[in-house]
Design a protein around this nucleic acid. Structure first.
Lengths: 226, 226, 226, 226
DNA sequence: AATGAATGAGCCTTCATTCAT
DNA sequence: AATGAATGAAGGCTCATTCAT
């Protein structure tokens, strides 16, 4: 019975995976236990064996969601060493080829609708934001340490940056007719570049280039295309 | 029977009002036709008389929601004549004393969760964004015309600005433990100030003040308090 | 809409009737809402319209049961004017031709199993007993007043008498193989006669007859038949 | 493997013990196989290994119940040598300090609800009554033999006596608010004393005392306290 | 116009039973 | 012998929708 200690773990992952994808597809408001069970390759009863109620399963699922989003962010930032690059390392947000991204959006919308009314979900959302802020303040502190940013309290800035990401990503996902991925990428580079500007030390190069924040939107705007 | 057309109008408003408040309270996922009927002072049958199905009523309700939010934005901007002031005229977003604001957030979260999956709601959301963008591009064009902003395509900038509002407002509402109203107000002034910077013509005064965008966060960050 | 005020009353009676007969048949432990709805000629939803939960319906049903049993007892006693006859007026208990009797037994067993564990049902049972005791104390008081019984506190005696009825009825119903109706009738006349004996004033006639309590069991026993 | 037959015995007792206590607590209507398995310190599968179905286990459990009640009665009577004392030897019925008594009542109520509808349980109930009757007829026969009772068929009298016990015990257990243990004890002494009266030979002593049946209720009634 | 009685599909959850290990 | 994972039927309850009045 070597497999039994692992079985619980395997099944729970199987179920969370199924829950994430069915909720993403159908919506937390409409998904049924049957949908999830079927997606997990289990019977309704089998599902209940691992998560005793829909609420318990939902909470675990959204906890998992936030865990995964956090992991994705952490890994994205870890691929860069320059602090400003770390801060701008969220291009994956605008890549629907990435199945995690594609699935993540609808789940995130559900999580916010839940968090807007239920304290448990609000707490999860809050905790996730906190962890994200920690990543960003880490990068900012590194920038202060290496002299590329001025001295400051990194926390409010990190909150602003992450909120900007949040806003642009949502807008981009919900209004694809009018918001291209390019708009999204440029947009947050503009906005974050702007938000960061006062805190960045001007180098000779940057001073010449003006913003030096990768703000391609400026150029785009000055040479309107569409 | 001159009163019948009026009655229809009255009843429909009564119902939409009830739908808005009950959905805000209970959530689109859980609200029932009974809840809404009761809030409207009607019976279930009376409700169905005016909106033949829950879906029809929901669509009308969210249409009304976007209409109201738009009206609120339009009025807020109309109170200012300076283009930059118009762009920054959204302080009402961080005022939960305002019942419209308080009710608006949960409804907006529901609308996004719906829009993330159902084309009808996505179209509504998109259309609302478009009208908001129009307001902002109007202000930007005015700024270009009166010489306070440089020449540019106002549309992408307007989209960025509105997305920033969106992101900060959401973050502020969902994580009240860590995001004060002051953070929110300062945050969007910083971010929008930053995003606008490249497009604003430096006046003598502004040049002296540096950003001149009402960026109180900068000062806050440099003199960390908590 | 003249019928609407009465409809609620009609339906509730219809449902209670259905509940009484289906519970009697199937048992409180196994009867389903569907069973009851069907017996009442309604759909499941229609049933719930009148009784919002199974528990609510069950409580109403057992309340009705005790009401009916009480009414039956009251009427039986009312047919007699002599106090001793009133006390002995429960022959209907041993008449399964009577549909109320036939239905009443299984319901009463369920009510006791419920009362043994759930305070609400215990309270109902208790209240029913109290009302029965009142009937009996009334008869005893009448007997004291008209001089056929000696002075005493009628309450404990009434409780004993009703308990005897209870015991004999139960035994008779559950072990029909060995307890004939005649045994039951004789048995309670014996037992109650015995219990009453000390409190009855001996008349000349009675003194000669010995017991004078209608104790036919004695004769039966002395001339064993089966 | 001499121990295997013993293990079977041990496990079955373990299970019956668990079934008796969980059913007593939770009620036959609501107890689950899991409850019983857990109380027995076994898994669901382990339970099924010994009793192939819930029905099989229930039947065995109630058989065990009647066996135990009978044993208790037998032992109580065996402690007395005088026939009248044997007949009155059921004081343990009113002693909730006794765990068997405390557990026995709810189980007995369940057994009656079952017996009222299912022949198997009715047969068990009937058989239990028969064995009880045998105990009582034995005592009565002894009384006839030693000259303290008159000649008679002891069977109907025994049935009456046991039914009286049954009725008073039930009433006492279900309506504790109004029936004290003293009432119960006095009550069955009164009732049984009354029922026995015609069959007892008057001794000089008894003749003087009147009933001589331990009828303390009579005195209580004549000197009402509350 | 408006009511609310009635329906019935659908959902979450429970639980006896089966079965691989 | 014993476990507990898994099944699936069944039940209580919800709720959008219909319809007679």
């Amino acid at each position: 019975m070597a497999s039994i200690p692992e079985l619980e773990e395997i099944r729970r992952n199987q179920i969370l995976e199924a829950a994430l994808s069915t909720i993403a597809e159908t919506g937390a408001a409409h998904v049924t236990m049957d949908d999830i069970a079927q997606a997990a390759g289990l019977s309704k009863g089998g599902l209940i064996h691992y998560y005793r109620s829909k609420n318990e399963l939902f909470q675990a699922t959204f906890k998992e969601l936030f865990e995964r989003i956090f992991e994705l962010s952490r890994e994205s930032m870890a691929q860069h060493s320059d602090p400003m690059e770390k801060i701008l390392a969220f291009d994956f947000l605008y890549d629907l080829e990435n199945p995690y991204t594609r699935q993540g959006y609808p789940l995130l919308f559900d999580s916010m609708a839940l968090a807007a009314r239920e304290p448990d979900y609000q707490a999860m959302f809050d905790a996730w934001v906190d962890r994200w802020i920690e990543l960003l303040t880490g990068a900012i502190r590194q920038g202060i340490a290496d002299g590329s940013f001025v001295e400051m309290d990194p926390d409010p800035l990190a909150r602003t940056i992450s909120a900007i990401y949040h806003g642009i990503a949502i807008r981009w996902y919900l209004a694809p007719r009018s918001h291209s991925s390019e708009w999204a990428v440029n947009s947050f580079r503009t906005a974050i570049g702007g938000a960061m500007a006062p805190y960045r030390k001007k180098t000779g190069q940057d001073a010449e280039k003006g913003q030096g924040t990768g703000n391609t939107l400026m150029e785009m705007n000055r040479n309107p295309a569409a």
